[in-house]
């Protein structure tokens, strides 16, 4: 990963949700950095804290400890300037657009509020940028007249209208039809090239993370367990959880018949975040767990290929 200052970063961030009776320990000491013109993928199962991290980066709620930094400066709270730089695209394009407002309303408001020209030409240019052509037709449509993929493009156009430098995508394709998912991924890749955006791509689909991103981060139950260049994480996973995730993902190439499925032992489920296991939270499911794993979270071990992991298996001491 490059040496320059990250555009947006979460540094050693912890988030606990207090619900009165109990505390949900959603994130523990997580660090994630986003660089200009690079795409980072954040991979994990539901409840791993991916969405919480994205929403912390987008300042939807404050951190419990740690810092969110924009170009090196600690962010104190959400304001218009912050959202001029950072935008988030939601998972569900059916919920993220106002069903009673036309497509152009979304884009035009975003342009106007950030002091950009908001005439028809500007609106159409943005819609064309996300491949909604003929833009003049799409501008006048209501969300229910669009397919899921088209809606997600509108949401992306709205985010782009403020001319941000960071785009956070919270599972932006998981609710879309299979055949149009790649279209949206290719669009994100193009925006990275053309606009030099820093992109965070959150997903549970590790194959699509490999397709789109430069770096992959893997989270488990609120802890960051592995990260590094996409290919090293996929081809040489260091953490047993990453390996489990890879082995579980459908891979038609691997199928020599259906044998791949039957090999899986009963591996349990992710822990409750109200009362998570001490040490490495993966240890109850980990076939290689040692005594150490049950008491303390391992420090980071770095590898020559640029990847790193937090796992006692890779720590000599």
């Amino acid at each position: 990963m490059p040496e320059e200052t990250p555009v947006l970063a979460a540094e050693d961030v912890t988030k606990h949700f207090d619900t009165g009776r109990q505390t949900v320990r959603a994130l523990e000491n997580v660090t994630l950095r986003l660089y200009r013109g690079r795409i980072a993928a954040l991979v994990g199962e539901s409840g791993s804290g991916k969405t919480t991290l994205a929403r912390l980066l987008a300042q939807f709620y404050p951190v419990t400890s740690g810092e969110i930094r924009l170009r090196g400066e600690v962010v104190s709270g959400p304001d218009k300037d912050f959202y001029g730089e950072v935008q988030l695209v939601f998972q569900d394009p059916f919920a993220s657009l106002n069903s009673l407002r036309k497509v152009e309303h979304n884009v035009r408001r975003a342009l106007k509020l950030h002091g950009h020209a908001a005439d028809d030409a500007a609106v159409h240019e943005l819609l064309a940028k996300v491949n909604l052509t003929p833009a003049a037709d799409f501008a006048r449509k209501l969300p229910h007249e669009l397919s899921g993929g088209q809606r997600q493009r509108v949401a992306i156009a709205r985010a782009l209208a403020v001319r941000p430098s960071v785009l956070l995508g919270d599972e932006p394709i998981s609710m879309l039809d299979v055949s149009i998912r790649l279209d949206v991924l290719n669009l994100l890749a193009r925006l990275r090239e053309e606009e030099g955006l820093a992109l965070l791509y959150i997903t549970h689909d590790i194959a699509s993370a490999r397709y789109l991103s430069d770096d992959i981060y893997v989270m488990y139950a609120g802890q960051m367990v592995e990260g590094g260049p996409a290919e090293s994480v996929i081809q040489e996973p260091k953490h047993p959880y990453t390996r489990l995730l890879l082995d579980s993902s459908p891979d038609p190439e691997r199928a020599g018949g259906s044998s791949a499925f039957t090999a899986t032992a009963k591996l349990g489920e992710p822990p409750s975040l109200v009362d998570p296991p001490p040490g490495c939270r993966f240890h109850p499911r980990c076939p290689f767990a040692k005594e150490q794993c049950k008491t303390s979270f391992p420090p980071r071990t770095e590898f020559a290929d640029g990847s790193w992991t937090n796992c006692w298996l890779h720590n000599e001491s």
Partner: peptide, 20 residues
């Protein structure tokens, strides 16, 4: 989500209430 999204592009509270 759509209200959150409009908040993120900096929509004012009165417009949020009356328009969204």
């Amino acid at each position: 989500d759509f209200v959150m999204a409009m908040r993120m592009i900096g929509e004012s509270k009165p417009r949020m209430i009356f328009v969204e």
